[in-house]
């Protein structure tokens, strides 16, 4: 019989992993379409959390409205991010320069720069200390399931994330937008030849990624009850690790690896102090890069 404490940790790990998965999907979609890593993704998470906190303190809306608002803000953040940090560097449209090394490095560094600007702007506006979430919005009412105690947040995070994952799957496989996203990530030039508006597809990818990231931000913010300007960095790195483990462009791979990461972290806290728990993710990353450079679920790639 497993100790109920471990079951409890597993539930917490599962909901943690789901938030990493939401973040990792944003990374994976954008990497698939542009072949670049979006270092500003963690800031979308922070922006989602802060914008929702502002809404909560201003008008105290119902919970569902907060989530919808976070999604809208995330969409806006994704859109502006693409326009500011990525579009100016896409000067040429042929495939060679779209996926060229100079282009990759320029956008990587510009997204890093934009992420610094966004984080510091939030810090100037709100101060660097932690903001407390109003008590009635916290999603941590305990629920007793036999010997296991979980909180409502675990269920809500799991439910909303699962809903968004299903929605994403529907969008990618059953709609025109999803078809064009898949086409562009497969072959941008080919997509252009068959009449897909590549620029608009890239924007849509950022909008979808931004919605996922902002939703993860506000859910985690309400779960732990604290929101601060640097909150996006650690989940961003974890989601990034999940993406690399999953093989860079595989969405199911990224989701599975994100959940593995969340589970192993929450189990790790029971054995080692929480300060060292972040080591698990970096360890996973290094081991993956050394032994499975293609990622656990990735397609074959020429060189890594």
């Amino acid at each position: 019989m497993i100790d109920p404490y471990y079951l409890q940790q597993l539930v917490i790990g599962l909901s943690l992993g789901m938030t990493y998965a939401l973040m990792a999907i944003g990374f994976t979609l954008i990497f698939g379409v542009l072949n670049v890593v979006n270092f500003a993704h963690g800031e979308v998470y922070t922006i989602g959390a802060f914008a929702s906190l502002v809404l909560i303190t201003a008008v105290a809306p119902p919970f569902v409205a907060v989530v919808v608002f976070a999604l809208a803000i995330g969409a806006l953040a994704g859109f502006s991010l693409e326009r500011i940090a990525f579009k100016p560097f896409r000067r040429f449209t042929d495939e060679a320069s779209l996926k060229s090394r100079a282009m990759r490095e320029a956008t990587l560094l510009s997204s890093l720069a934009v992420s610094i600007i966004a984080r510091e702007a939030i810090e100037l506006l709100f101060g660097s200390q932690q903001q407390a979430v109003p008590f009635e919005y916290l999603i941590n009412q305990p629920i007793h399931l036999g010997p296991v105690i979980i909180v409502t947040g675990d269920l809500i995070i799991f439910g909303i994330s699962a809903l968004m994952l299903i929605g994403l799957q529907f969008l990618l496989t059953r709609t025109h937008v999803g078809l064009s996203i898949r086409a562009v990530s497969n072959n941008p030039l080919g997509a252009r030849y068959v009449g897909i508006n590549v620029d608009r597809t890239i924007i849509m990818t950022f909008v979808i990624g931004g919605m996922m990231g902002a939703a993860a931000g506000i859910l985690v913010g309400l779960y732990y009850g604290v929101i601060f300007p640097a909150m996006g960095f650690i989940p961003g790195v974890k989601a990034f690790v999940a993406m690399v483990m999953g093989g860079l462009s595989s969405i199911p791979g990224a989701v599975i690896c994100a959940i593995i990461l969340g589970l192993s972290e929450s189990v790790a806290v029971t054995f080692i102090s929480s300060g060292w728990a972040d080591m698990v993710a970096y360890g996973f990353l290094i081991v993956t890069l050394i032994f499975f450079p293609q990622g656990l679920f990735g397609a074959r790639r020429e060189r890594v």
Binding site: V37, D278, M279, Y282, I286, L289
Partner: peptide, 26 residues
């Protein structure tokens, strides 16, 4: 890590940097 190229190398150095930072901190 030295046989990794481009973005994989960047990710590996990011992870190594964070690991050293965690050691200094913890």
């Amino acid at each position: 890590t030295m046989r990794l190229v481009s973005i994989y190398f960047a990710v590996a150095t990011l992870a190594i940097g964070q690991m050293i930072y965690l050691v200094l901190l913890n």
